[in-house]
Amino acid sequence: MSKDIQADLAFVKALVSEGARVRISGGALYLAGGVCYGLQCLVQWVHLAGIVNIGMWGNLIAGILPTVVFLAVMCVILWRDRKVPKNGVATRALNAAFSSAGLANLFMVGVFAYTAITEKSILIWLLYPITVCAFQGAVWFTAYMIRREAWLAIISIGWFITTFALGLLIGSPHYVLVLGLALSVIMGGGGWYMMRQARK
């Protein structure tokens, strides 16, 4: 009997630790993405609003450096967690939801970029971040439906509000400001809180 109890406790402990490890890694990725791309948008807003002229090199660095830093962080996390099992039902469901959204975003960026270039329209390109925000709202709502944690619903609502706000601000320099704040606060903050909850 005691062996059965010990086996059950070991199984539960494995599930909890697995979920915590995965959530810490996911949170770290979201925090890194929020900080990198949030700062990128805020730097671009400062330039577009005429507050500071960062010049051609400043724009080039702002355009490339965040992606380089984020990819480096992602590679470190993926390498560190390469042997972590992901067998829990909730973990696999969340991974599927976030991976599907990421895959959809990957294809959509190609579609929007190609169309914007061929049509010579910046307006078409500005619709892409709005689509990303809508996807984020949907995937975080999926996470809420699986985990039933209120903070996940708050993150989802934040993304949907951002989607609507960006639609109203197309063509304005404040479009980039709102996007930068959303990435920094909603994405970065959501990632930080995910890590904090997992460590508890």
Rank of each mutant, 00 (worst) to 15 (best):
A10G: 10
A10N: 11
A10S: 13
F11N: 14
F11S: 13
F11R: 15
F11D: 14
F11T: 13
F11H: 14
K13H: 12
A14K: 11
A14Q: 09
L15F: 03
L15I: 08
L15D: 00
V16P: 04
V16Y: 07
S17E: 15
E18G: 05
E18L: 07
G19W: 04
R21M: 14
R21I: 09
R21Q: 14
V22C: 06
V22P: 00
V22H: 10
R23A: 15
I24D: 01
I24S: 04
S25K: 07
G26W: 02
G26V: 03
G26K: 05
G26I: 05
G26S: 02
A28I: 01
A28C: 11
A28P: 03
A28R: 06
A28M: 13
L29A: 05
Y30S: 01
Y30A: 08
Y30M: 14
L31T: 04
L31M: 12
A32F: 03
A32M: 11
A32C: 11
G33T: 06
G33R: 00
G33H: 01
G33D: 04
G34M: 08
G34T: 02
V35C: 06
V35W: 00
V35N: 01
C36P: 11
C36E: 09
C36W: 08
C36H: 10
C36F: 08
Y37R: 11
Y37D: 05
Y37L: 07
Y37S: 06
Y37Q: 11
G38A: 09
G38D: 10
G38S: 10
G38C: 00
G38T: 03
L39K: 10
L39A: 14
L39Q: 00
Q40F: 01
Q40R: 08
Q40T: 06
C41V: 02
C41W: 02
C41L: 05
L42D: 04
L42M: 12
V43G: 03
V43S: 00
V43I: 15
V43W: 02
Q44D: 11
Q44A: 09
W45T: 02
W45V: 05
V46S: 06
V46D: 08
V46E: 06
L48G: 04
L48Q: 11
L48S: 10
L48E: 05
A49D: 13
G50F: 00
G50Y: 04
G50R: 07
G50A: 04
G50M: 07
G50H: 03
I51A: 10
I51Q: 09
V52K: 12
I54Q: 01
I54N: 06
I54R: 02
I54H: 06
G55K: 03
G55C: 08
G55S: 02
M56I: 13
M56H: 13
W57S: 12
W57R: 10
W57T: 11
G58S: 07
G58Y: 06
N59M: 14
N59G: 15
N59P: 04
